[in-house]
Design a protein around this nucleic acid. Sequence first.
DNA 1: CACAAGATTGTAAACGTTTACACTCAGGCT
DNA 2: AGCCTGAGTGTAAACGTTTACAATCTTGTG
Lengths: 341, 341
Amino acid sequence: MPDVSIKEVARIANVSIATVSRCINNPEKVTEKTRIKVQDAIRQTGYSPNRLAQSFRRGRTNIVMVVLPSVGDPFFTAVMKGIKSAATTKGYSVLIEETQLNTMTADEIGAMLVSNQTDGIILLASMSPFGTEILSAKSKRRLPIVIGCETISPELADFPSVHIDNIAAAKEATNYLISLGHKRIAMIYGQESSLLTKDRELGYRAAMKQAKLPIDPGWVVEGDLTITGARKATRNLMSHNNRPTAIFCANDEMAIGCLHEVKSSGLRVPGDISIIGFDDIRYAEVTDPPLTTISQPAEEIGERVMYRLCRRIDAGHGTTSSPEIVPHKLVIRQSVAKPAD
Amino acid sequence: MPDVSIKEVARIANVSIATVSRCINNPEKVTEKTRIKVQDAIRQTGYSPNRLAQSFRRGRTNIVMVVLPSVGDPFFTAVMKGIKSAATTKGYSVLIEETQLNTMTADEIGAMLVSNQTDGIILLASMSPFGTEILSAKSKRRLPIVIGCETISPELADFPSVHIDNIAAAKEATNYLISLGHKRIAMIYGQESSLLTKDRELGYRAAMKQAKLPIDPGWVVEGDLTITGARKATRNLMSHNNRPTAIFCANDEMAIGCLHEVKSSGLRVPGDISIIGFDDIRYAEVTDPPLTTISQPAEEIGERVMYRLCRRIDAGHGTTSSPEIVPHKLVIRQSVAKPAD
DNA sequence: CACAAGATTGTAAACGTTTACACTCAGGCT
DNA sequence: AGCCTGAGTGTAAACGTTTACAATCTTGTG
């Protein structure tokens, strides 16, 4: 049985195609008798509506796109989990695009936004290069966009967003190190372009300033959010003549790389160097030593951001666009101790 | 400027809509003069074709769906990377579905297969429960499906697939332990339902048999492919009265959990217990000690499987469906040593 | 019993493309 | 000049839905 359309069902059930359509979409508008007739015909033919035609007619695909830095990052996959679970209950499928992969140029993403292949977009990556692209796309066709995890750049300010208070969280992490007596505290941040990372750096600097601790410029290094990037950054830190006693990493992925590198340089963690991460990915508790880190409610962020998107899709731009701040938490494990000296 | 359709462009360029369409899709069938006229009109109006209408008309979405056990698993995300890179060069978007998440029932996946929202499917999860669903869907509408990583179950035998030789690889891993003198070798496998895991167990058993080493039934335990599952399994193994000297884990994720559990029980790796993993995820080299494991060319598998799918989509079912075996490699790091006794 | 009102169903248009087919027109041939 | 060819273009149908509107049926009421 090849393509069976609504017409065939109508013929078999001996009703009009309109009735079949109503049977499926507004069953309450149809007599029980005909409903049964039609359902029988549907079963008989194995009919299922052509989604392409539906999408076309309704102007809705029930697909949303999520743009993230990397599907490999356990933190973002945790967020994805929340997104997908919400998406499923709302009847959406999820299309994934990575920015890291360079798989799509700004133009292509822009094109995707415009050519309504998707009903809405969740941005988990700041994508500064895409900023303008998005804005122009948005004005062309008011495509619902919401932003997750990232603090929003001024140009995107009128999009709804869901995230923790990155500045406060980073401050808390740094303060924890300070409270234990650390004075020489380094930080490995992400890419220059990442706002999220910028905020965490801001928090770190604020905490240091408040404690009146100086920051050696050589202590603040870029790690591009990957293990390998962090290892390289850590090597630099280790060879620094004014070596820090603690390192704050802007995400756990980097903290894992950092941890490994410190240990393989012969130093002990936390004996010689304390390390604190960010995100609380699931590997954080099985590192050696288990990682002290800032925990984000990743899955919850995902759910909320998806529900927020749904509201945008349904209600248009009438909805509020104020940022939604979710709580973070300092999780104390064993990678941080008092400084030796 | 709201929705501008091909009609508007035609009006402005003073040609028929057919000509506009041809200008876009078959520029060579149109005079240079009209081509310029039309392109001007397109620029002027900011027109971009309605993808929904295109999809509907052409019966093609240029979207493929990949079904995997969990987006969180670094191995599968590595495969995804390959898939996405190939997909992009071929002009496809990628839709992700997880089986683990239970986000979709078999019925829903079946429905998705049938209602041609996607042009094809890549299965990275064996999904035994979906087997029949898929088959029926396949017969209803010959939807291109290819299978990656998994060995294929008999019922899916006529689908193309790309994977390593899991049996041989597991055998190699086990033989490596045996060659170092281990005699009491345990295995933590995945879910019962996972064929992939079944094959690895087969390889393990074959190697043990060949070496004439007995397998204590208590040595072969289920770990459901997650860190926590593996930790639980490891605790069982540790408390076994005939404790193994080496543990073969069916994936690295579990090996990481296993490693952590062994160490926190006070035993040393590899001093007291050797651990070998499978997949060579990126965390494998930063564990303590770095993990000896079987490496799979994950990204390559992803690319190949995607290209294979493209061929299926283009050529229909005429294409070959023989499995494509890619090479694996034993990566020796430091989690395995000679047994103490 | 007739009629109004409301519930149910049918008719047909519309969504924006692509494409088979028909048509026009220029230029080269006999 | 008439004819043929082929390139370029236009006309109109088709894809499978949804839905406004019209038509019909049912039911309750005067």
